[in-house]
Amino acid sequence: MQDLKMASSCACSSDKKKEDKDAKLKQKMGKIKNKLVVMSGKGGVGKSTVAANLAAALAMKGFQVGLLDVDVHGPSIPRLLSLSSEKPHIEKDYIEPVPWGRNLWVMSLGFLLPDNREAVIWRGPVKMGLIRQFLQDVAWGELDYLIVDCPPGTGDEPMSALQLLGSDAKSIIVTTPQAVAVDDVRRSITFCREMETPILGILENMSSYSCPKCNEHLDIFNTGGGEKLAREMGVTFLGGIPIDPEIVRSGDEGYIYVKTHPDSPAARKMMDLAEKIST
Rank of each mutant, 00 (worst) to 15 (best):
V182L: 07
A179D: 15
T176K: 11
D183S: 11
A161M: 02
I173T: 07
E204W: 07
L200C: 08
R187K: 13
G166A: 08
N222T: 15
P177C: 04
C211I: 03
E204F: 01
Q178T: 10
E204H: 07
A169L: 10
P177N: 04
D184R: 07
C214Q: 02
D183L: 06
S208F: 09
N205F: 05
I202Y: 07
I220N: 14
M195W: 05
T175N: 00
L229E: 02
F191C: 02
L165T: 13
M206S: 01
I189M: 04
E227S: 11
T197A: 08
E216T: 14
S171L: 13
L200S: 09
N205I: 14
L200D: 00
G201Y: 11
I172Y: 04
K170T: 11
G224F: 01
F221K: 15
L164Q: 03
L164T: 03
L164E: 05
C214W: 05
G224H: 04
G166C: 09
L203H: 03
G225K: 04
T197C: 11
K228P: 05
G224C: 01
Q163Y: 10
I189E: 02
I202M: 05
S171K: 12
N222A: 15
C192I: 10
I220D: 15
S207I: 01
N205E: 09
L203Q: 06
Q163L: 13
F191P: 00
L203F: 12
I220Q: 15
L165G: 08
C192Q: 10
M195F: 03
C211T: 08
R187H: 00
G226D: 07
P198V: 06
T175H: 01
A161T: 04
E216M: 12
S208L: 02
C214P: 06
S207Y: 01
G224M: 00
A230Q: 07
E196F: 08
A169D: 03
P177W: 01
T175E: 00
T223K: 12
L162G: 00
V185F: 04
D168F: 02
Y209Q: 09
I202E: 00
F191A: 03
D219L: 12
E216S: 12
A179S: 13
N205K: 03
S188I: 01
E227K: 14
P177T: 07
V180A: 05
A181M: 05
R193Q: 14
E227I: 10
I199M: 07
